[in-house]
Design a protein around this nucleic acid. Structure first.
Lengths: 337, 337
DNA sequence: TTGAAAGCGGTACCAT
DNA sequence: ATGGTACCGCTTTCAA
């Protein structure tokens, strides 16, 4: 059996109130003598207060829920580390929920976290959620911070990259290197950040008076295999492109694999660029040109933000923290005439 | 304010007991009429029962704690997915704790999980834990399953790969390909699986009458950078080796980076092998020869095991589930004479 | 300095 | 088919 506060109180011949005081380090209200005795008992009997019982009365929990789209995309573990770092500095723990790229699972996790007295939620919303769900969370008045995402319809606290600008700069870089036929492997367009990237692509093309060709655009789901398959699809639609811009590095790497299998040289025959700058980007050959997100830092900021909200330092809280992208030029793009 | 079971009872003009019955889907004890009315109210007021209050009385929680060494090693997310898959099939959720390769953090998480009425812990123990801690967990009688690890001193439920055999086969493969000077980048030797791999290396050498040369052995911490640095260290000690065997793929990839930077060709000048077969292994060039762990399946088995324990199906529970390794031959090893 | 007792939001047993 | 109520393990007044 687990030893409870009652047990300790009994053994120490004091009330539970007194034990509670020493457990919670209340400086006053307990005699030096008693405190010492209780402390010893706690140690001896290995007493651990039940966070559940405590949570029931305090309604607080030092636990922050984190919902991400997919654990196996290295981008998210890196973000998670950033969040965990500052959470731990402040004594908070993280419950990590992997939504598996599924809207339903995300919603289920939202419920799950709500039921468990987490003291806040950091939500990397992938597929745009319905207003119903959004309303529900916001009505629960649980501190909520969006990371790498942003609901279009509500005013929320958000930490994200300027995705549109990022993709714009990336495509512009391609254009300045002489590319005129730019294929695009997009993600699901009901994802906020994907949609922004898409707009960045479109904007760049139109700013440079280049036509939008739907044959040049295919969709994937942000995993390697989809990049691989997308290239096949692309070639079945047209052969008239000199570079493939991908909405993330994973798909870019998949694309490069497919091109290699087809005997097409990167970047000699066709160039490829990615997005995110995960570690693998510099490990593949040719090294991938991509745009970096300061993901660890974004994680840290999101954690800071939610802790500020939780602890009521409203003066320090801004609505949005928007990060700037950073173009990382490596070896996967050829300059052409 | 959050609406409670009491609120619903009041509005519905019934007792909390009745509401509790319908919330928990007790088929009997509630009239058709009443049930319908309450269900409507629950929906209308968006009532979510507090898992915390419930946990306090039932002492159960449908939450399994999972402790892993390092989220940024793709090996662990893959394992986590396997665990989550079957956990969800059975209605359980996972609290993921990243021990950050630190013994202290692992111990802290163990405490954390203990305090929170998780109904079981799956523990990927990295640095061998002390008996004190081990005793403490086992005394708490919380269902506990070790994955990819195994305490040496106690009888526990464990799911793991036969690491020794795996490394033995890998090294044997090198020997059969003519390699006689085999460098070894190990991990921390107080890790069970690392230690087993080390033994596999030693055993293979001695079975083939090859000497153990300590200059050929350097230690890293399972991250890319360590593989990179280890190669530098290796060359400062000796130049007399034809292949580098690494205790995981990440370090192997780091090693290949360093070799490339030094202008040394893999596998022409020096061969490299890894361990794990994470996705990246087949993405780098040359493609990495390595030994695969059926990690997703291992995750699934660990989850099955702990759920069997939790739900008291003791007949189905064996002490250890040991998986067989699978040599994956790619392009990073040269056959020499 | 210390203790008694009222909850927190549920569950489950015992009556009715 | 329902309701009343005693807990679960803790925190937090309020009194002593």
């Amino acid at each position: 059996m687990k030893v409870t506060i009652k047990d300790i109180a009994e053994i120490a011949n004091v009330s539970v109130a007194t034990v509670s005081r020493v457990v919670n380090n209340k400086s006053k209200g307990v005699g030096e003598e008693t405190r010492k005795r209780i402390l010893e008992l706690i140690d001896q009997y290995d007493f651990q207060p039940s966070a559940v019982a405590r949570g029931l009365v305090t309604k607080k929990s030092k636990i922050i829920g984190l919902i991400i789209p997919d654990l196996t995309n290295p981008f998210y573990p890196k973000m998670t580390k950033g969040i965990e770092d500052v959470a731990h500095e402040h004594g908070y723990n993280i419950i990590l929920c992997d939504g598996n790229n599924s809207k339903e699972k995300e919603a289920a996790y939202l419920d799950f976290l709500n039921e468990h007295y987490v003291c806040g939620i950091i939500y990397n919303n992938f597929h745009t959620i319905s207003n119903t769900i959004l309303n529900k969370i916001m009505k629960s008045s649980l501190p909520l911070v969006f990371i790498d995402s942003k609901p279009e319809t509500k005013r929320c606290k958000c930490v994200y990259l300027d995705n549109r600008k990022a993709m714009y700069e990336l495509v512009e870089y391609l254009i300045l290197n002489g590319h005129r036929k730019i294929a695009f492997i997009t993600g699901p367009l009901d994802s906020y950040s994907t949609n922004e990237r898409y707009k960045g692509y479109i904007n760049a093309l139109s700013d440079y008076d280049m036509p939008i060709d739907s044959d040049l655009i295919v969709q994937g789901d942000y995993i390697i295999k989809d990049g691989y398959n997308a290239v096949g699809k692309l070639f079945s639609q047209t052969k008239d492109f000199t570079v493939i811009a991908c909405c993330n590095d994973l798909m870019a790497i998949g694309a490069m694999e497919k091109l290699e299998d087809m005997g097409i040289d990167v970047p000699e025959d066709i160039s490829v660029v990615g997005f995110d700058d995960i570690d693998i980007a510099s490990l593949v050959r040719p090294k991938l040109t991509t745009v970096a997100q300061p993901i660890h830092e974004m994680g840290r900021e999101a954690a800071n933000m939610i802790i500020n909200i939780i602890e009521g330092r409203s003066n320090k809280i801004q609505d949005n923290i928007i990060f700037k992208p950073n173009l990382v030029i490596r070896d996967s793009v050829k300059k052409i005439n």
